[in-house]
Amino acid sequence: MPLEVEWQISYKPRMVVNPFKERKPLSGFTTFRIGGPAPIAEVSSPEELLDAIGDANSRGLDWIVIGHGSNILAHDEGVDKGVIVFSDDSEPKLKDCIIEASAGIPLATLIDFSQLHSLSGLENLAGIPGSLGGAIAGNAGAYGSSISDCIYEIEIATRKGNPLRIPKEKLSFSYRNSAIKRERIPILRAILRLTVGERSEISERIAERIEDRKTKHPDYRVVPTAGSFFKNPLNSDGDRVAAGKLLDECGCRGMRIGKATTWHRHANIIVTDGKSSYAEVRALATMMAERVREKFGISLENEVLFLI
């Protein structure tokens, strides 16, 4: 169901020189380090993002917005649509327990900011890579909590390039999903509501989560990966079961196709040596999902997005 909006924000597009004039390999914009050339526009603020959308629309160029590329598998041959890469280094704004932040900032930056100001609610997300916008779209979570727990409202860009604000209640958040992800709507900004806590306790929880994550996930800066490939499915009792456990029981740990393989510590994580391809990773993921379906009668759903 299309999103219902609360109110529209006034915005006057600015004239910009064609931001899509260069075709660059998508491998440089995803943590899998896979992907062929595409018309790419790199933007560093919500306003620049709106400008790029306006420019693409004026040229009749289809487009998609990505953040830090930590949950994307891009095709080897690239894409013809415009790819807007949104990465922002601005500092969040704070009033009482309310934080307003650009969707292009790293999730880690937001967590550090909340820690600095003794605000609790995001600690369980520590160590998760990617941008704030990507985390919201996929309703990122860990240890029983999700980022949607802290969202108050967001500001999006429509396909026409108009900014709109939408309250949390209209975003249809669910396990690793949202209306934003389903409809591929770009997020400009987010407003989060946190709670006051003890800074020392917040810092301790963040450190614990980061250390725990290091044992369960490879460092994408060292090993090309997109993290967990499949969502945790529901079993016959309606409870979530770890996809990694199912894959392990199907003998998927250590499986390999070409340069793509499952990580030696976690069967739900596909890694490469930096020289793999879209075809190899997708073929491996398909084989993994087939094994689970044959053994347990459970269909795994991709958490990684395919950019083709």
Rank of each mutant, 00 (worst) to 15 (best):
I156W: 07
N162F: 10
L164H: 11
L164W: 14
I166G: 02
Y175W: 11
Y175H: 12
S178N: 09
A179R: 08
A179E: 06
A179V: 00
R182H: 08
E183I: 01
R184L: 09
I185E: 01
I187S: 01
R189F: 02
A190D: 02
R193S: 10
L194G: 00
L194R: 02
E198N: 09
R199V: 03
R199P: 01
S200G: 01
S200Y: 06
E201R: 13
S203Y: 01
R205Y: 03
I206G: 08
A207T: 05
A207S: 13
I210E: 13
E211H: 13
D212S: 13
K216Y: 06
V222P: 03
V223K: 12
P224F: 13
T225K: 08
T225N: 15
F230P: 04
F230W: 05
K231I: 00
D239F: 11
D239G: 01
A243H: 05
K245D: 10
L247I: 03
M255I: 01
I257L: 13
G258T: 05
K259A: 15
T261W: 04
H264F: 13
N268G: 05
I269L: 07
I269V: 15
S277G: 13
Y278I: 01
V281N: 04
V281H: 04
L284A: 09
M287T: 09
M288F: 05
A289M: 11
R293D: 12
R293L: 15
I298H: 07
I298C: 11
I298T: 04
